[in-house]
Amino acid sequence: MGFNLACYFSLFAVIVLVLVPFVGAAAGWHVIFGIVIPYLAGFIFLAGLIYRIVKWARTPVPYRIPTTCGQNRSLPWIRRSLRDKLENPENTIHVIGRMALEVLFFRSLFRNLRTELRPWREYPEGGRLLYWSTKWLWIGAIAFHYSFLVVLSRHLKFFTEPVPFFVPFVESVDSFFQIYVPAVYMSGIVLLAALIYLLVRRIADPKLHYLSLAADYFPLFLILGIGISGVLMRYFFKVDIVAVKQLAVALVTFHPTVPEGIGVIFYIHLFLVSTLLAYFPSSKLVHMAGIFFSMTRNMAGNNRAIRHINPWEYPVRVFSYMDQENMFRKQMKAAGIPLEKDTEE
């Protein structure tokens, strides 16, 4: 347990990011924080993601990487279950199945194992090596990602006029318990709880703490800041929602205007979101696009059925036995080693 420099640095970076719009909005720079920065951030987000995707797509992948967690396609009498087909796919359809499991259900996190040396009564001087399945990270990740998706889809109501049909539906499910006015959204609570778990996990576990960098802490603090500012805005420090929607609709219709009288908490929220968008393509968060380029997931394990040629220019310099004999014929003959071809005879 403890904080390291990376953790402190990320925390203070986010605090500064909160203070910037706090000061800026108080100074009246609403056009900068309400229009210029969001547009800039949106542009960096989209252009940056496309740049990363094209860069990845141009990188050759030399090998198919077969995964050994499922029976590969082999002789016809070796049975393969659906599980084997999904774990060790042989064609595109199965690959799509494996990718869907990965993208929608985080299959590789589900597989997470923990190795632990436990004291053992029958062998007191040593211990017993245990491998056990840990699902905590998987649960945290699922809770975080899906609640974030729900929160994101709910926000469409600010950007669309009229609001598309699925947004009220998502909202009504999300505020099912009808606690308080405005109704408390479950996704908000789950999002913050999952983020706090993911953060505490990095701080409390010494091994993870040792592994974690500023690039791991910063997104957590940043999204936590976004979540907290959003919750504060909805339930505590109210802002004029109609004005907020006017601003959002003005942004997406390219008629940017800043309505008067939106509280500073809104500009903090918007600035943190803009930071997240601009930071996205250059951070570990690009796994949103990168997951589709994971070559242990997106290639069929058909090495034995189809010949794959390394797409790199790779002229192999071959030094055959005959090359060796040609080079050392004299010496070999002197040593009495039998030759394939004796030129002196």
Binding site: P168, S172, P182, V242, K245
Partner: peptide
């Protein structure tokens, strides 16, 4: 309606 709010 404009803000997509359905108060209960």
């Amino acid at each position: 309606t404009y803000s997509g709010i359905t108060p209960h």
